[in-house]
């Protein structure tokens, strides 16, 4: 499904990714964990095209996508719920969701009807969003914004979802809710790459995990294997 091969990327003169490689198989959830500043967000940006890799390849369903505009990659079936949620604060909740499906909706009229079943599905998953569908996204609580960011990504009917720290800054109860959603999506067969600070919880939902250190993958394995790794236990799982 997704293959990242020896990717180098950075911001201007500062090189962040120094040969990152990872793979996500269809129908699996893969966790990407690591310390602050290790390059997890940068990896996601390099995959979704927000950042152009200086070297290396990103393959989506076997096709190279590195160097394409992020909007092109999104239309190939990759949905990226970015760090910090990045909802469109001046648009209402429902407009945010509709834009999630932008690639396959008519531009002028009739888009609401065409998106009705997808909206229904997202509202069923997040009833709170239905209650607030006419509210400006900028006025939502952090947890609601995160639900909106995930819902907006789902609207695209993606083949692969990238979730960057969906639990960031949320109260423990809400974090539980977010992870319940992730489990539910996994049960429905969604393929996901998940970046998380809560490494423990992430390993509970993941089928496979990568640990990043300074722009490279330092350790990888199944959650069971990683839990046996003493070094990792000390550094990330407390």
């Amino acid at each position: 499904m997704l293959l990242v091969e020896d990717v180098y990327a950075g911001y201007g003169l500062s090189e962040v990714l120094l040969g990152t490689s990872l793979a996500v198989k269809p129908g699996t959830v893969v966790a990407l964990i690591g310390a602050n500043g290790a390059g997890k967000t940068t990896t996601m940006r390099a995959i979704s095209g927000l950042l152009r890799p200086a070297r290396g390849r990103v393959l989506l369903d076997g096709n190279p996508v590195q160097g394409l505009a992020a909007s092109r990659i999104a239309r190939l079936g990759l949905a990226h719920a970015p760090e910090g949620r990045k909802v469109f604060g001046t648009l209402c909740v429902e407009d945010n969701l509709l834009l999630g499906a932008y690639g396959r909706l008519p531009r002028f009229f009739g888009f609401r009807g065409r998106a009705a079943s997808d909206l229904e599905r997202v509202y069923a998953l997040f009833p709170r969003l239905r209650e607030r569908r006419r509210q400006l996204a900028g006025t939502l609580s952090g947890g609601e914004q995160q639900m909106l960011a995930i819902g907006r990504a789902l609207m695209a009917r993606p083949k692969l979802m990238l979730l960057d720290e969906p639990s960031m800054g949320l109260a423990p109860v809400i974090v539980q809710e977010v992870f319940r959603t992730i489990r539910q999506l996994k049960a429905e067969g969604m393929t996901m790459l998940l970046v998380e600070q809560f490494a423990k919880t992430a390993l509970e939902v993941a089928d496979y995990a990568y640990v990043m250190e300074r722009g490279r993958i330092a350790i990888e394995g199944t959650p069971a294997e990683l839990r046996r790794d003493e070094r990792l236990l000390a550094a990330y799982l407390g």
Binding site: S48, G49, L50, A69, A70, S71, R72, A74, R75, A79, H80, P82, K86, V87, F88, G89, T90, L91, L99, G100, Y102, G103, R152, A156
Partner: peptide
């Protein structure tokens, strides 16, 4: 509002 987030929705900023 947010050029990058728009791109992630499949909207070509260009």
């Amino acid at each position: 509002v947010d050029r990058d987030a728009g791109e992630l929705m499949g909207i070509s900023a260009k």
